[in-house]
C-alpha cells in the first residue's frame, strides 16, 4: 500500500531530483528496477527531475540523488550548482562515493596516454575521475556498484521520516555467514568479504562469486589484515590489488600494498644478485 501518513501523521513528500555524471546510469536504473515497490516509493517523494525517465524538470528540490563521478570541468560546475539548490545531497553508488570503475584510469597517472589509447590524436576533454566529495560536501553516501534497491528504499524512508541513516560498520563476511553461504576461500576463490563494509547482504558470495569490495572498507579494515589473508590463502598480490583498486573505495589500501610488494620484489632481486 502506498504510504501517505506515518502513525496517522500526514507525511511531507520531499521534492527529490536525480542527476547523473560520468556513470553507467545503472544506479538510477536500480530505482526504476524496483517494479514491485516503485509505486510505494513514488508515493513517499515527489520526483521533480529524473532525465532518464521524464521530460518535465524543475529546479526546485530538497534532496538531490547524484550518480557518477566527476571527470570534466563542466561536471564540477554543474555539481556545485546542484549543491547550492539541494538541502541534502546524496552520493549514489560507487562512482559517486569513490570514483567507481571510472577511477581505474587514474592509476596510470598519465591522462594523455589514457586519452590516446582510446581516441588517438582526436582531442577530448577529460580529467582524473573524482568522487563527488572531492568537489562538494556530500551529506550521505549510498554505497554499491550497483546500489541495492532495498537499501535505497530504507534510506529514503529514513530521510523522509527525519530519522538518521547509518551504515553497518562490520564486514560483508558477517552477512555471508548469517546467510550460511559456502565460503569462497574453501573453494579456492579470492574474496574481499572480510574487509568490505556490509550492507549488501553478501550479494556476490551469495551466488558463489567473491566480493570485489564495491562498498569500500569496513570500519576496522586494515592492510595487515589484507596481507595476512593473501598469504594464508596463497593469492598473488596482483589478484588482491585488482580487487582492491576496482571501485576506488580501497584506494589507500591498494596503494600501500603496491608499495610493499614493489619493496619486497626489489629486495628479492637484490638477494638474487
Amino acid at each position: 500500500m502506498p504510504v501517505d501518513n506515518y502513525l496517522g501523521v500526514p507525511l511531507h513528500r520531499p521534492k527529490v531530483a536525480f542527476f547523473e555524471f560520468t556513470a553507467c546510469e545503472g544506479c538510477q536504473l536500480q530505482i526504476l528496477n524496483n517494479e514491485a515497490t516503485l509505486l510505494d516509493f513514488l508515493s513517499l517523494v515527489e520526483v521533480v527531475a529524473f532525465r532518464e525517465a521524464m521530460t518535465e524538470r524543475s529546479d526546485d528540490y530538497e534532496i538531490a540523488f547524484v550518480e557518477g563521478s566527476i571527470t570534466r570541468a563542466d561536471e564540477a560546475k554543474r555539481l556545485k550548482e546542484i549543491r547550492k539548490k539541494a538541502k541534502v545531497l546524496v552520493a549514489m553508488g560507487s562512482c559517486a562515493c569513490f570514483g567507481g570503475v571510472n577511477q581505474l584510469k587514474n592509476r596510470f597517472n598519465n591522462n594523455k596516454w589514457v586519452k590516446e589509447q582510446v581516441y588517438g590524436k582526436f582531442p577530448v576533454e577529460s580529467e582524473e575521475a573524482r568522487p563527488l566529495e572531492d568537489v562538494v560536501t556530500v551529506d550521505l553516501n549510498i554505497y554499491g556498484c550497483p546500489i541495492k534497491k532495498e537499501e535505497v528504499e530504507k534510506i529514503v524512508t529514513n530521510l523522509v521520516l527525519g530519522k538518521s541513516v547509518s551504515h553497518p560498520k562490520y564486514p560483508v563476511c558477517m552477512e555471508c555467514m548469517a546467510n550460511e553461504n559456502i565460503c569462497l576461500y574453501k573453494m579456492g576463490e579470492p574474496c574481499l568479504g572480510p574487509v568490505t563494509r556490509a550492507g549488501c547482504d553478501a550479494w556476490c558470495p551469495g551466488s558463489r562469486f567473491g566480493c570485489w569490495g564495491c562498498r569500500g572498507p569496513a570500519d576496522a579494515a586494515n592492510v595487515e589484515q589484507i596481507i595476512s589473508i593473501m598469504e594464508e590463502h596463497k593469492f598473488s598480490a596482483d589478484t588482491i590489488i585488482d580487487r582492491l583498486e576496482c571501485f576506488g573505495g580501497f584506494k589507500k589500501f591498494a596503494g600501500e600494498l603496491k608499495k610493499r610488494t614493489a619493496k619486497s620484489k626489489s629486495k628479492k632481486k637484490r638477494a638474487a644478485k
Binding site: 555524471f21 560520468t22 571527470t71 570534466r72 561536471e75 570503475v101 571510472n102 581505474l104 584510469k105 596510470f108 596516454w113 589514457v114 586519452k115 589509447q117 582510446v118 581516441y119 577530448v124 577529460s126 575521475a129
Partner: peptide, 10 residues
C-alpha cells in the same frame, strides 16, 4: 563524458 574502459583494462 567518456570513461575510457579500453584504457582501464590494459
Amino acid at each position: 563524458t567518456p570513461r575510457f574502459f579500453e584504457a582501464m583494462l590494459v
